[in-house]
Write a protein that binds this DNA or RNA. Structure first.
Lengths: 322, 322
DNA sequence: TTGTAGGCGTTATCAT
DNA sequence: ATGATAACGCCTACAA
């Protein structure tokens, strides 16, 4: 920048003004500066800029479970684009659902002085963030609420969606509905199980505890779980899967055994409608979650000081296509 | 940092040493410093650190077509993890296959002084990167080679994979094989079409130009294209799709019309084996591409000065599961 | 083992 | 409209 300044015969501050499109620079001077910039191949140093009082690092940090999960991939994409509209780049990291990793990643992001943080929490305790939030760093939780602190959060209506899904299966005449849930101790899983149980209860269905299987993580886990369910003496006649991985595992297990139970599942996923089962989907838009999170974040960055918000997006049933 | 220093009764430099785990600090002093850090809630400023000559911004930039595409999502995930092993965070941006956007994103990343750049190129001309590369910023191209410059590149064997796919369909006895390709003027598409045509020629198949449809982008595009193919007077008896979106669109079109042509397609995608068509997949591992790209990048960062490398990963056919 | 000096590239503030 | 000066928070290089 000093080089440019002397090449253009001005002070560094004037170069700074030109580079940042500040007003109050004579057009002729500005052009001279720009020519020098092109000539010398100068490129502004964003790090120095952030350091020197630009009071923004122009970056947002995102910690999600796994970018390669299409659900989170779509969310990440929406967040990235919305951040770009706000002049921010996105630093993304996958926590793989591991609490220590989440905390380490957050630490790294804060060291880089991101302007804000968007988290799909994996940790079971977020008190470690309290100090940072009080210091003024906006933090938004997506898809699951934080534990141990109160902070801006955007969720979808897990419980309501699960009720709808369960009612759908009940409406088809099923009495023995298995629940294949991820988790345990993952908010979305717990809520969705609760929602289904509420629906069962409201319909006076007796619940067989053996039909409730919580704790699979991968679709392979779910496949094994469903295989076991199908082998029961008194197997279920329908399945509610709490997320896309559970659903895929269940479909695989059914397919492997040539069975075709009715199913309902959370999370839209590509090709769900072409699968060889009756599968109703509880849809919720990951992009809407992402955009909502960014909105919350930038409200804070723009000075909004209301108490922490909790936004709940609706879910809706997409009936089986078959 | 100055505050910590005075609180601990040492100089800032000693705090710096402690924070960076440098050797040569008396354990007692170190503990005193750490206590002050905990007490005052100090957090190192990574931006300042990078500025001050740490000769690394500890960040890598990634520009891909679309994180929400599972193929690129898996690649991004592998890149992120491998970068983390090298102590770097990842700044990810989606170019949406738009050249101007790619260039803008690259510009932004360079302003942030990323240590290196990994690109799935969308632009048709990468001469704009030449100066930066000569200046010493390592740039690696993934999935598609650059145009107009020579640089480290990692690809998969598009042409070979396409030949294998085409031969598979030919081996099933097909003479009228449609090619549903993305693009046009996307390297992978062109190569895959060429590979298939080579196989046709080697098998003395007469090629009907009407069966070669290049230029769809979304799976919806592909669905329409295949619908048109099926409506031909003399429709194809098999389909080769050049990527996952093309494959999905084709499957949808077949399904909508109750047809079941044999298919071969590039890109593994979840549930492909459960679809109601004979579908052989040309598999290539996006994670391997990602890891390979990071390897190339860090070789350069570690001083490797060989001429630009071109790595080609093999592809293999996964026959239809049905 | 610890400290001092100087500077990284930019911007805020206050002058001119 | 433009410039001088002093940070920003840290690190390298050298000294003690």
């Amino acid at each position: 920048m000093v080089d440019i300044a002397s090449a253009a015969g001005v002070s560094p501050k004037t170069v700074s003004r030109v580079v940042n499109d500040e007003q109050g620079v004579h057009p002729v001077t500005a052009r001279r500066v720009r020519e020098a910039i092109d000539l010398l191949g100068y490129r502004r140093n964003g790090l120095a800029s952030s350091l020197a009082g630009a009071r923004s690092s122009a970056a947002i940090g995102l910690v999600i479970e796994d970018v390669s999960n299409p659900f989170y991939g779509a969310m990440a994409r929406a967040i990235e684009e919305t951040c770009r509209q706000h002049g921010r780049i996105l630093i993304t990291a996958s926590s793989d659902e591991r609490p220590e990793l989440e905390q380490g990643l957050v630490q790294t992001l804060l060291e880089r002085r991101v302007d804000g943080l968007i988290l799909v929490p994996a940790a079971r305790d977020h008190t470690y963030l309290r100090a940072e939030i009080e210091r003024g760093t906006p933090v938004v939780f997506v898809d699951r609420p934080p534990t141990g602190i109160v902070a801006d959060t955007i969720l979808c209506d897990d419980r309501g969606g699960a009720r709808i899904a369960a009612n759908y299966l009940i409406g088809l005449g099923h009495h023995r509905i298995a629940i294949v849930a991820h988790g345990p101790s993952v908010y979305t899983a717990d809520e969705r199980v609760q929602g289904a149980l509420e629906a069962f209860e409201a319909a006076d269905l007796r619940v067989d505890p053996g039909l409730i299987r919580v704790g699979a993580y991968t679709s392979e886990d779910a496949e094994r779980v469903v295989a076991l369910l199908l082998d029961m003496d008194n197997p279920p006649t329908a399945i509610f899967a709490t997320n896309n991985r559970m659903a895929i595992g269940a479909v695989r297990a059914l397919h492997a055994r040539g069975r075709a139970l009715d199913m309902a599942a959370f999370d839209e996923f590509e090709l769900a409608d072409l699968l060889p089962v009756q599968l109703a989907i509880v849809g919720h838009d990951p992009r809407a979650l992402g955009r909502g999170a960014v909105d919350l974040l930038f409200r804070r960055l723009n000075g909004d000081a209301r108490p922490p918000q909790r936004v709940v997006l609706p879910t809706g049933l997409i009936p089986s296509a078959r």
